[in-house]
Amino acid sequence: MISREEVEHIARLARLRFEDGEYERLAQELSKILDYVQTLGELDLTGLEPTAHAVALKNVFRADEPRPCLPREQAVANGPAVERGQFVVPRIG
């Protein structure tokens, strides 16, 4: 069972804020999801290597050859605020 504190912690890491009542609901929903994933634990995986990937591929590389970049106007086009070709972000800290 996921605790309210754990939800608050995860929310803080994800920079999310919820109404007070929502934490209890989220704790229950997250617990349900984890319980569901837990059904995987019923499988007998003896002798199977852990895998990080569903596709049986490895060593997919790219040659170290430059490719064209975006024009700067396009690169910063989605920035909510732009100054001298750079993204403006609020003061940090």
């Binding site: 430059p66 490719r67 970049c69 975006l70 700067r72 910063v76 070709g85 750079q86």
Partner: peptide, 15 residues
């Protein structure tokens, strides 16, 4: 494939 050159104008070596 963006170049890694140092000292270019900001946000010109991006994709």
């Amino acid at each position: 494939g963006c170049p890694t050159s140092f000292g270019e104008a900001p946000n010109t070596q991006v994709c």
